[in-house]
Simulated assay, not measured.
Amino acid sequence: MTLLALERLTVRRGDCPVVDAVSLNIAQGECVGLIGPNGAGKTTLLRAALGLMAHEGRSSLTQMSAPERARHAAWMPQSREIAWPVTVETLIALGRIPHLPRGARPGAQDQRAIDAAIHRMGLEGFRHRTATQLSGGEQARVLIARALAQDTALLLADEPIAGLDPASQIATMQVFAGLAREGHAVLVSLHDLGLAARHCSRLLMMHAGKLIADGPPREVLTPENIEHGFGITGFWADTDHGPVFQPLEVTG
């Protein structure tokens, strides 16, 4: 089942296309890594797909009403500012708003979703702490949990593991891969190519606004692609612990 379809999605800055006629489908059960250098158009692609900025072409998400879209797709932007000194549990509970009638309070089903998100992100010990008093990495995990509590078919996340410690980065990618195995779909932009290789079932590589590669990690992270897309060399190995990819040198 297709959960996101883009057809020649284009975003222009003046006459220059920042995202240039990108077409792709994201299906149920996929954990898709969106990779590319800074300025490749990854954030713009995600925001345009959600209808958050003007674009040409078609996104299946923009065909939905705003309430329907909020129940179908959760969005995690790069910005991680928590403005209000509320408890972690209260902040995570905001993820349930799309599922509640106007003015209604969370019920038993909502609480189960909140509890499941807290458990997935290892935040049991933070439940009653004030979110604004947490470290930056801890706040990032809380915001990921808020998106998980939304319990949507599709999750779009823009660099969600940036700034997290290695254990939290790995744990978060394991959560995303687990969501895909459960039948959800995840589209996540990443700069860590090693984690993308290990935890994503598919990679989309962007360069200068164009989608230049799409497929399983081993087929995308080829020497030719990473030199063209990133200007680097890299090392790939299939090991007993799964695939390992390590960027090595700048090519020039």
Rank of each mutant, 00 (worst) to 15 (best):
T152Y: 12
H72P: 05
G234H: 00
T132M: 10
R127Y: 02
L123P: 15
L195V: 10
G103F: 15
A66S: 09
H241A: 14
Q169H: 06
S65I: 13
R69M: 13
R105Y: 14
G194T: 05
L100R: 12
G215I: 10
V19N: 06
Q246G: 03
R146A: 04
L50D: 06
D151I: 06
I212D: 01
P216W: 02
R112N: 06
F245E: 00
A70T: 04
A48F: 06
D15K: 08
P160N: 10
H99V: 15
T2V: 12
V11Q: 02
G57W: 05
D240M: 09
K42M: 06
T239C: 04
M1W: 06
M53K: 08
G178S: 15
L61Y: 05
H99L: 14
T222N: 00
R218Y: 01
G33Q: 05
L91Q: 11
E138T: 08
A145P: 09
P98S: 14
H55K: 07
S65V: 12
L34T: 04
A180I: 13
H184L: 11
Q109F: 14
L148G: 02
A149S: 04
P77S: 01
E124A: 15
A213L: 09
T172H: 08
A113P: 10
Q174F: 12
I26F: 06
A180N: 15
L211N: 12
G178W: 09
T90H: 15
I161W: 07
L94A: 13
L221H: 00
L154T: 05
G229W: 00
E30K: 11
L6D: 03
A180E: 14
R141C: 11
V175G: 08
G41D: 08
R105K: 15
S59Y: 09
E68A: 12
A171Q: 13
R58G: 12
P216I: 04
N38G: 10
A157N: 07
P77V: 01
